[in-house]
Design a protein around this nucleic acid. Structure first.
Lengths: 132, 132
DNA sequence: TAGTTAAACGCAATATTTTTGCGTTATACG
DNA sequence: CGTATAACGCAAAAATATTGCGTTTAACTA
């Protein structure tokens, strides 16, 4: 609050009340510590395109419920276009990804095709969503 | 520290020292507030595959430097395979993305091709990297 | 334009939390 | 088995967040 108050030229108490309002309004979802993936031994980022065997509502629900249980999967998006889901996965290395691929991803319900693309390097990454 | 200490069954001071160690070691990069993209008016997530006109080092550097300046781009990965870079972009809506596409992405140095894939829905999203 | 109302502000007191010093305990290594 | 190093908990001190309250600002109405 003090650091923030100096940045925005407001008193700490005013900042505090504004922040509380944002929390109550659900604009601020959570407070977290961002970690260095490499130093945690997760140097490999892979984007996985997944096609399902069908589009039945029940199938999508089952898939979404199951994929959420895999801790290696950081993001899951339902997509338009060539495939159904895009996953962002973090692995220790390529061999570790092979394990994730076989033991977790390929076994997800309804999966017809998996297309994996490896990141050679993450140029940058932020959680800061523009406000304007 | 107090909340954490209860979770891990340690005293607050012990937690504090461990956290400090993680900070110094660079395992913890930063502390941030995670925001609700929808409530900030950024409901649209788009993944953009970019192919450059060449692979010269100098071209890649220029591209990476420029793309980092676009606040709508939250992530940029150098990729193997069919294209060179994968971007994660957040837009207000599809029309807003059209603007970003024309005014920012298409004008990046060295861009040969842009292939955009829209997320219909973000099933889930986390910053929690597995520690095992 | 002046009056009224609601929202936001700063200050200062209070409450809570973090941070540090220190003696003790546990763990690892020779 | 002894010694050395690292980690622990407790309690005091320092820093920070939180709340109450009176004042100011801004917006809306007559």
């Amino acid at each position: 609050m003090q650091a923030l108050s100096e940045i925005v030229h407001l008193s700490p108490s005013a900042c505090h009340r504004r922040i509380q309002r944002l929390e109550k309004a659900g604009v601020i979802r959570d407070y977290v510590a961002l970690t260095n993936a490499r130093r945690l031994g997760r140097s490999t980022t892979v984007f996985v395109e997944i096609s399902l065997s069908g589009q039945a509502d029940e199938l999508l629900d089952r898939f979404e419920k199951e994929v959420a249980l895999i801790p290696d999967v950081l993001e899951c998006h339902l997509m338009t276009g060539r495939y159904d889901y895009l996953l962002k996965v973090v692995a220790k290395d390529t061999e570790d990804f092979a394990r994730i691929h076989r033991q977790s991803l390929a076994r997800l319900p309804g999966v017809a095709q998996l297309q994996s693309s490896f990141a050679l390097k993450t140029v940058f990454k932020t959680t800061a969503i523009p406000v304007d």
